[in-house]
């Protein structure tokens, strides 16, 4: 019983991280139909910038905010300076460009910081709490609370603010949004900023548990992508549920089936889902009109 609880806590922690990374994929996909392969690198940037600001003596809340803003800024620059300027973009050429951006950012981190791991203390220390007989690190609680707060904030942002509604409108029909006076290029840039910021948040939250390195973005990016596919790429809140399902499935499979194949669970799940419900678990099936 306490084993099961332990696995569930671990799944909740992983799942929250995957969910946060996954929302970023879904936001960008919804607004500009781009699969952003550089999303994982924002996770890396979030962790790295926080670690280095902390080492420079900056207090944690400021360091975290600085990391999120730095990632958002890089996201905006990537969108405004590169992606939005592509002539005759096709899905493939955009994929290659985002892959180029991810190689560039990862390569820059490798060249500037080297290949070693960087660590960071938990926000409330590293002594595990005992909850119902299972050990939980306080960082896990931080991660889960952050996911809940972020989900609520995004939901309010979409429903209650003009900007949020502008993003919704642009996602559902770009031309119509443009016609009613929404500044579509600005909306697209903001979506990139928001995705990068969420990725960075996930990165700085997970660093005390998983450490960070120049290439952590590859794995975390792929898991986040799986979370977004599971939830249906078109639905940001689906990505959160997709992330949580993935987190639980990984933790349970790792605990009860095989720890060597824990990392394969995400990919087995997406293939199974593509075969059964190709539009994601939480999307209404779309009908092609000819």
């Amino acid at each position: 019983m306490s084993d099961l609880l332990q696995f569930l806590f671990s799944g909740l922690t992983r799942g929250s991280i995957y969910g946060l990374v996954g929302i970023g994929f879904a936001l960008i996909y919804r607004s500009s139909h781009v699969i952003n392969f550089a999303q994982g690198e924002f996770v890396m940037i979030g962790g790295m910038v926080t670690v280095f600001l902390l080492a420079a003596g900056v207090p944690l809340p400021v360091a975290a905010l600085g990391a999120i803003l730095a990632a958002a800024l890089i996201g905006v620059v990537a969108q405004v300076a590169i992606i939005s300027r592509m002539r005759r973009p096709s899905t493939l050429s955009i994929i290659i460009v985002t892959v180029g951006i991810s190689m560039f950012l990862r390569g820059a981190a490798e060249a500037l910081l080297g290949r070693q791991f960087f660590s960071m203390k938990g926000f409330s220390g590293d002594d595990a709490l005992v909850l119902l007989g299972a050990k939980v690190s306080p960082q896990s609680i931080w991660i889960f609370v952050s996911l809940v707060v972020t989900t609520a904030a995004i939901s309010l942002f979409f429903r209650r603010t003009i900007l949020g509604k502008g993003i919704q409108a642009t996602s559902s029909n770009r031309l119509a949004a443009h016609l009613v006076g929404i500044d579509v290029p600005a909306v697209l840039a903001i979506c990139f900023a928001l995705s990068a910021a969420l990725g960075a948040l996930a990165g700085l939250l997970t660093t005390p548990i998983t450490l960070t390195q120049y290439d952590v973005g590859i794995t975390l990016g792929m898991k986040g992508f799986c979370a977004a596919i599971l939830g249906g790429l078109a639905n940001p809140f689906g990505a959160i549920l997709g992330g949580l399902i993935l987190g639980f499935a990984e933790a349970l499979a790792g605990g009860y089936v095989s720890s060597a194949y824990q990392d394969a669970v995400a990919f087995i799940l997406i293939i199974a889902m593509l075969l059964v419900r190709p539009n994601g678990l939480f999307s209404a099936p779309t009908v092609d009109r000819v």
């Binding site: 290659i96 180029g100 991810s102 190689m103 560039f104 950012l105 990862r106 390569g107 490798e110 060249a111």
Partner: peptide, 8 residues
């Protein structure tokens, strides 16, 4: 890697 990414 930076150069390859930039070239892409």
């Amino acid at each position: 890697h930076v150069l390859t990414g930039a070239l892409l």
